[in-house]
Design a protein around this nucleic acid. Structure first.
Ligand code: NAD
Ligand code: NAD
Lengths: 230, 230
DNA sequence: ATATTTATGTTAAAACTATCACAAACGGGG
DNA sequence: CCCCGTTTGTGATAGTTTTAACATAAATAT
């Protein structure tokens, strides 16, 4: 089952770091920095230089001995790898609290991610606009997605509605779902799902805040806490 | 420098799964399920039964051979580990698009995370309320945090303001910062920072959507892409 | 030209995670 | 009370990710 190097799957750990490289290189580019070494990147990003070289080598030989990496070239390559060289059309489903915040945010379109339509089930919202983007009734979603060649659907609906909508749009030309509901959605197709589970993030923060007390508790007990069910 | 077992640091990978266990057990509890085996949890969560047992063993011996885990007990224990047995006071900094969405969300308080004050620099917002929570001027933030024994600060301000505010509140009784700005903030103290980098999440989604094309490109080249800087 | 410095790509080792496998403990039924 | 099926906790194993080391190549200085 050994695969040749070229087709070896890139690990999730590496992929998660790519946006950091992208951001960092964009900053360097803005500062008119022409070249950068893994060493310098290491200083900025806090990853080891070795890791940076290995990460980049998953995708190609972008550097040169004695010179380092050309900032502009590397930025372009990483953009391509992340699929940022072409722009993306998105739809937003759910124009509630979170949906409206996302619709009003300008930071996505600066990277080529544009919301082209918004959907809701609330008749009071349908027909309105957010930043010139029309809100349509969710029943028209499949048609509008296909008609406009939309890439990505942002899910910001109540969690009990998430699954149904996900299944619905999985029959369109949608390639990815950006899911803001706490629900773990599963679509049986080649659609990619990226979850933003804010509660998990908050709980992780809480864990770290609580870590000290947790240790104290264990130290007092002098050994593992053991339970019996009655 | 070997540490005894009880004090061995729990790995990040495990911590990230704890909220999943918590959610899952809450669901079981609601369904009045009394006991559960690692096997059954495995079915629900998609982790291996072995991993689940090892994860839980980082914190104690919560199960019993031949019986499994008592849902209610395990839920309580995981809640304690995550620091959810006591309620948390939070402040929100930045009452813009995202800030308002977060302030209006009820899902945090159901887990004991309550926003007790909101801060902004915009005089038009100061004095108003969101869901009965007053918006104060950000210059009063240190006083109000300390006065109310606030745990957590939510950062939803423009990114160029993030660092300054972070430094300011790091001198209060704040224990954790939940950072929604793209800025990587560093506070030189024992304050925990949890980042929600939405752009990174979107880029990761984009990567996966683009993955197919990326492979094609590599296959056509028949080997790694190699660059020279001139 | 040639030597020296810089810095990559890559191989090897170390550290970290996940899975396997099984003895030991418990529950329940006869 | 004892047997048998269940299921944990754990030590061993396998797999993954990170870090270290270095041969090699380009750039720069001499
Ligand atoms: N607001 C937050 O800060 C926040 C934080 C974490 C998670 N979330 C999650 O994000 C999701 C949205 O949160 P929110 O606060 O914006 O909720 P919300 O109730 O304010 O908005 C939900 C919107 O979805 C619309 N809707 C309902 N059913 C629909 C359907 N079938 N099709 C299309 N639209 C439909 C509603 O009309 C409403 O406008 C929820 O799942 C929530 O759990 C929100
Ligand atoms: N809205 C989104 O969907 C979204 C998505 C990703 C990231 N973000 C990030 O979240 C942050 C907030 O985004 P937003 O869309 O809500 O922006 P916004 O401009 O709507 O809101 C920012 C708010 O912060 C206030 N503010 C400015 N300076 C302040 C200061 N010194 N102290 C206190 N308050 C101050 C402003 O008055 C404003 O109300 C930004 O860093 C943004 O990059 C937002």
């Amino acid at each position: 089952m050994e695969q040749p190097d070229e087709f070896k799957k890139v690990s999730m750990a590496v992929i998660k770091r790519l946006p950091k490289y992208h951001q960092c290189l964009l900053n360097l580019l803005k500062d008119n920095v022409e070249r950068v070494s893994s060493q310098k990147l290491s200083k900025i990003l806090g990853f080891t230089a070795s890791q940076i070289r290995q990460d980049l080598n998953n995708f190609g030989e972008f550097g040169q001995q004695g010179y380092g990496y050309n900032v502009s070239q590397l930025y372009t390559e990483i953009s391509k790898i992340l699929g940022l060289n072409t722009s993306h059309k998105m739809v937003l489903v759910g124009a509630g609290n979170l949906g409206q915040a996302l619709a009003n945010y300008t930071g996505f379109s600066t990277h080529g991610f544009n919301i082209v339509a918004i959907f809701d089930s609330n008749p009071k919202l349908v027909g309105r606009k957010i930043k010139d983007i029309s809100i349509y009734h969710v029943e028209d979603i499949e048609y509008i997605i296909n008609e406009n060649d939309v890439d990505i659907a942002i899910l910001a609906v109540p969690q009990d509605k998430a699954e149904k909508i996900a299944i619905k749009i999985s029959k369109t030309c949608i390639r990815g779902i950006w899911n803001f509901t706490p629900k773990e959605i599963t679509v049986n197709s080649d659609i990619v799902v990226e979850n933003v589970h804010l509660i998990d993030s908050l709980f992780t923060l809480s864990y770290h805040i609580n870590e000290g007390k947790l240790q104290e508790r264990l130290i007092k007990q002098k050994r593992k806490i053991s339970l019996t069910h009655r």
